[in-house]
Design a protein around this nucleic acid. Sequence first.
DNA 1: CAAGTGACTATATTGATTATTAGTCACTAA
DNA 2: TTAGTGACTAATAATCAATATAGTCACTTG
Lengths: 207, 207
Amino acid sequence: MTTETLDTLAVGHRGPGDHMIRQQIIEAAEAHFSRYGYNKTTVSDLAKAIGFSKAYIYKFFDSKQAIGQAICAQTLERLLEQAQAAADGGADATDKIRKFFKAVIGASAELFFDDRKLYEIAMHSVVEQWPSCVAYCAGLEQIVRVIILEGRAAGEFERKTPIDETARAIMSVMEAFVNPVMLQYKLDDLPDGPLEVTNLILRSLAP
Amino acid sequence: MTTETLDTLAVGHRGPGDHMIRQQIIEAAEAHFSRYGYNKTTVSDLAKAIGFSKAYIYKFFDSKQAIGQAICAQTLERLLEQAQAAADGGADATDKIRKFFKAVIGASAELFFDDRKLYEIAMHSVVEQWPSCVAYCAGLEQIVRVIILEGRAAGEFERKTPIDETARAIMSVMEAFVNPVMLQYKLDDLPDGPLEVTNLILRSLAP
DNA sequence: CAAGTGACTATATTGATTATTAGTCACTAA
DNA sequence: TTAGTGACTAATAATCAATATAGTCACTTG
């Protein structure tokens, strides 16, 4: 394992992993991307914002896209944290599944409405299969897997289906609402669509 | 009910509903769209193909898009027929569900690989919410509904959940593989993804 | 050596200019 | 009246030069 942080895939990073400047760049990028969007902010804009030259930015990041990935990863990590917190607040496994999906979808939809520009980066990351997105999906699946195992241990859920298949299938099923690319087409179905699908999932988990 | 056919929503049609020329236009459009794509074929091309002037086309269709809708509707109807036929070939309701989804997804994927241009029109129809697409989705859901009712009558499936909710949820769940916009991102998951999701659906239907 | 940059190139992006194309309509011929 | 069209306009799309941007590198400064 490198000196890079564990939870952030530091793709496209250069130079020291933990540097004040790197954080400043990320903060400036988050502000600019959020306000003007990814395409409309230039690397020079970011450089000006932190008071250095554009060339210096490239001591810390491989490319503009790498900066985008960093702030996308940050955004998705935040989503993931919210989802985990919601799941933790559930009384039993069934409740956790319910709260988990409600939180993920709610938070995604909120991002869509309040912060369209960041949402667009997230969509981009999905289409381009950025590692941040892959990590996000894997994170969601992992949370689901843990909940299911808990439910199985408690006798709440069936145990015949292989855990990997169950978790994968549930993620597939929820993808239409969880995947930013697809969610935009399903906004009309909120919040009932996810609820009905959650019910279907829970029925499929019944012992 | 108008004189228009029952199975084709004749949106954007003009003049007599059943006219030799209309059919000729549709055939020419299918050939051209399939070969050169929707954007690259001009209305004049179609006119030339059937040996009339461009203005005459507009005696039969409101717009170029209306022609696109007609051939899109035709394509989707064909998909629907294949799906229905596959379902009919199932031994029991469970088997019908399996065969149905396998057929829909297989046929969609085939369209994607063999006839990319037509597939693109289908995608366009989804994004633009053309009636042909709405009809297609409704048709799929109707087939599912009938199978479920059969399965319930045979004691194969549970009967507590309202049939509308069940059918809607199943369609939501399958959307990632059935919806042309989304399918293109899931091609790597074929054919195992749909299979696992089908299994999940069947588990959720267990009595 | 570490921190930082100006000046450079190749690739995108823009915008003003043309060229095509969708769609209409008044009209002719039978 | 019915079948069909040429000529027209408004909107859309292709073109291409001018501009802007991503990304590199040799270089300075402390």
